[in-house]
Structure formats: C-alpha cells, structure tokens
Write a protein that binds this DNA or RNA. Structure first.
Lengths: 202, 202
DNA sequence: TGGCTAAATGAACAGTGTTCATTTTATTTG
DNA sequence: CAAATAAAATGAACACTGTTCATTTAGCCA
C-alpha cells in the first residue's frame, strides 16, 4: 500500500469526520446554528482546517443533502416490489410523508432550504433526479394499467410531488398551526387520504 | 393639534420609513442580505435608532409579512363576485399562484421562511387566518352546490392549500429545475390544470 | 435661558464565514 | 541519521452580522 493511497484515505476519513460532526450539530440545532467554528470545535481542529476539505460551508450541506436523498431512496427501494402500480404510488407517497415527519431537518435541507443550492445543477441534483425518476416511472406503470390515461407524465408528477411537498413543507415550517383544532400529523394523514381519493378518481 | 399627537404621528412615520426601506432591500436582495445596518444606511440613521421602533429584526419582517397577506387578500377580494363557487375556487387558486409568481419574496416570507414566526400566534397570523378562512368558506359554498359532498372542510382545504403551496414553494426555491425540459411557469400552469381536473372529478 | 425629557448615536459585544501568513508535522532526499 | 522539501494544521485577521447601552444631541416647557 503506497503512501499516496493512505494519504487519500486519510483525506477521505477527515471529510467523513467533518461531515459526521456537521450532521450531528445540524440535526440538533438546525442550519443557522451550525457554524464552521462549532464543527471545528467538535472534531477538535481549527476552523481553517475545514476549508482544506470543503470549499465553503454550503459544500458541507451539499454532502448532507446527498445523504438525505440516499436515505429517502433507500426507504423507497423496497416499495418497488409492490406489484400494483397504484398501490406502489400510494405507498411511496406515504413513505415520502413519513420521511418528512421523521427527518424534518433533512427534508428541510433537501427540499426547502436555499443554502446549498449554489452548485452546478448536474452534480448537485443527481440523487434528487433519481428520486423524481422513480416517481415518473411509477406513474408510467400506472398508465400501463389504464390509469391516468392521456396525462402528461411531467405535469402529473409535478402536481403529485407538489401536493406531497406542500403538506410536508407546511408541516416543516409550522404552518399547520393555522389549523387550531387539528393536530398537524392528523391533518397530513387525512389530507393525504383526500389526495389519494382524488388520484383514484382522476 | 397637540404635540403628543404629532409625536405619535412622527413615530408612525418613522416606522413607515424603516419599513419602506426594509421592504425595498428585502425585495431586492432577499432576507439574509437585508441587515439592520443596510436599512439604517438607506434611511440615513444609525443602526441603534431602528431598535427604538422595532424590538428586533424579525419584528420588521413580521410587519412585511402582514403587508404581504393584505396584498394577497386584496387580490382575492374581487373574486368573491364570481358566482359559481367552484369557478371562484378555481380563480382563487390561479390568483394564489400568480401572487407567488409575481411576489416571490413576499410569498417566501409569508409561507416558507422560518424567520418572523417567533411571535405569539394570535397577533402574527391574524391576516393568514383570514386568508385560510376565505378558502374554507368557498369550499363550504361548493358543498352547498353538491360538490365535495361529505368531505371534511379542514382536511380538504389543507390538501388544496398544500397542492398550491407545493407548486409555489418548489418554484420559489428553484426545485422546478428538476424538470430540465419544461419551463417552470408552464409546469405550474399545467400542474394546476391537472389539480383542477382532479378536484372536478372528486 | 435653564432644566428636563425624549431621540439618536455609535462604540462595544459576541457571534458569523472565509482567508492566509505562519508554524507544525510528515515525507523524501543527500 | 540529518537536512531539505512538501504537506497539513493553525489561529489571528477581515469584514460582516444582530443587539445593547452609556453618551451625546435635539426639542419642549416653565
């Protein structure tokens, strides 16, 4: 094993160390409260060191962004074995919602935040595109069984995604409080049922 | 006219002056780039002065938040004369979308940002609640004509709002770019048409 | 004009992301 | 092994942030 490869591995380990610390602070305190100095302190290095492994703060969150998508896709993957396409679509929607509920901060980072988006589209959205392709494919599968006949896949996937995202985003940013007498989780569950009914008759 | 009343008027004018400057910077540069010092500089006062008229930065954005809702409600108001409730609902949806397209930053501030929400619910969401009540009422009007029969108004309004918000939020935060071959505005228009079709058959 | 109150100031505090000359550490060469 | 070189880590410094507060300035009343 050459020194060069060890050096490279150590570099990779350092990146992981930083990411691990960043993720913990981020999940605990949120984006705004996660500072470079906080991360540096946690891993017992100086702030400057972090800039040897990441070009800027957003780079770190870009990495977490990808991790979030890998997590979401990981949750979705088993659902490909649900045979009936519409049932699969329904299960995917529920999974998406559960992901948002259980990983508020990841969801925020992936779909709401402005921060880590100053990247060239191609490299930044690879994982996100994959997730969207999943959705489009299941819609095409539905169409193969006669559902959603004649509907454009792009437009249809967009409104479905929007509806799901809308609920999750309102949830993440506390706008569900507008409904004083209904608890947020119930609101989402029942809202989703309505969406399913709509799609079923569509 | 007593001095006291003039003093009070001057105080109000100063608030307006600050708000006006804040709004301009905010609409031009966004929330993060709008600093107290920037606002102070624009109105040619010292930073400290602003804290004599607003408790904190969020207070300023809370005021803009309200202004945004008044603007949205103002746009919605004429639509109450659309007789058919479902047509009215459709028009309201389109109006909501247009508002988001034309006032990206206001929309962001009103429905996406975390910032100015650290207020006691009652005073902060008065305007927002009014807007939501509008939606609920038109749904009830629809139900009076036999549409959406047996559906819970809270849940139904939530999924409709979510679908609209989802599109607008994805638009505001540049997630429409996920669709490489479709322009964002077309995506929203066509997405909305799909939503209307869904609601029509629901 | 003197006294008082209210308004405005701007330096100071504790924090931020980021840069870079300097020091420390590790590796290679003589 | 020692000296020279290359790589990694440092932390002070820069320009910024929101917010506070002792001090100065301006306006009003007796």
């Amino acid at each position: 094993m050459t020194i060069a490869t060890r050096k490279q591995r150590e570099k990779e380990e350092m990146r992981e160390l930083i990411l691990h610390a960043a993720k913990n602070i981020f999940l605990e305190k949120g984006y705004a409260e996660t500072s470079i100095r906080n991360i540096a302190e946690k891993i017992e290095y100086s702030p400057g060191t972090i800039y040897l492994y990441f070009k800027e703060k957003d780079d770190i969150f870009h990495a977490l962004h990808q991790e979030g998508f890998r997590k979401l896709i990981g949750m979705m993957l088993p659902l490909q074995y649900v045979e009936d396409p519409f049932e699969r679509l329904k299960a995917m929607g529920r999974m998406y919602m559960d992901f948002a509920k259980q990983n508020k901060d990841f969801y925020d980072l992936m779909f709401i935040m402005q921060a880590p988006m100053n990247m060239e589209k191609d490299e930044c959205w690879e994982e996100g595109d994959k997730a969207l392709d999943h959705l489009k494919q299941v819609i095409r599968d539905c169409q193969a069984t006669g559902r959603f006949e004649g509907r454009d896949v792009d437009y249809l996937s967009f409104i479905i995604w929007s509806a799901m995202h809308g609920m999750c985003a309102l949830y993440c940013r506390e706008r569900c409080q507008a409904y004083e007498n209904v608890d947020a989780l119930t609101l989402m569950d029942e809202g989703y049922k309505n969406l399913i009914s709509m799609m079923a008759k569509f």
